[in-house]
Amino acid sequence: MMPRTVAVVGSGVIASSVTAALARHGVHVLLLPEDPAHADADGPRVPVDLAVLDVHPSGVGPALAAWQRRGLAYAYTDVAGIKSVPERDVAHGHADAATYVGGHPVTDLAGRDASAALFEGRPWVLTPTPVTSQETLNRALALTALCGAVPVVMKSAAHDHAMARAAHAPYAMAALLAARFHPAVPEVLRLTGPELRDATRTTAAGPEAWSDVLRGNAPAVAEVLREVSADLTVLLDALDGLSAPETETGDESMKHLRHLLERAHDGQAALSASDSSRAGGPR
Rank of each mutant, 00 (worst) to 15 (best):
R4G: 14
T5S: 15
G12Q: 04
V13E: 00
I14Y: 10
A15F: 01
S16D: 11
T19K: 02
A21K: 02
L22C: 04
H25D: 08
P33L: 13
E34R: 15
D35M: 01
A37P: 05
D40S: 11
D40C: 03
A41K: 05
P47D: 15
P47L: 15
D49Q: 07
P57C: 11
A63N: 04
L64G: 01
A66E: 08
R70N: 03
R70E: 11
R70P: 08
A73Y: 11
A73G: 04
T77C: 10
V79N: 09
A80I: 01
G81H: 07
E87H: 13
V90I: 14
H92F: 14
A95Q: 07
A98G: 12
T99S: 15
G103T: 02
V106L: 13
D108N: 11
L109R: 11
A117P: 00
G121A: 05
W124V: 00
L126M: 10
L126K: 02
T127D: 03
T129G: 07
P130C: 05
V131I: 09
Q134S: 06
Q134M: 07
L137R: 09
L137N: 05
N138H: 12
R139E: 02
L141Q: 08
L146T: 06
A149N: 07
V152I: 15
S156G: 04
S156L: 04
M163L: 14
A166R: 14
A167Y: 04
A169F: 05
Y171E: 01
Y171V: 12
A172Y: 00
M173E: 13
A179C: 03
R180I: 12
H182K: 08
E187R: 07
E187S: 13
T192L: 15
P194F: 12
T202I: 14
T203I: 12
G206S: 05
V213S: 09
L214A: 14
G216H: 06
N217Q: 02
V221G: 08
A222Q: 11
E223C: 05
V224I: 11
L225S: 02
E227K: 09
V228W: 14
V228T: 09
L235A: 07
D251T: 13
E252L: 14
E252G: 13
M254K: 06
K255R: 15
L257Q: 03
E262Q: 13
E262M: 13
A264K: 10
A264M: 08
A264L: 08
A264N: 09
H265W: 13
D266P: 02
Q268N: 14
S276R: 12
G280L: 06
R283V: 01
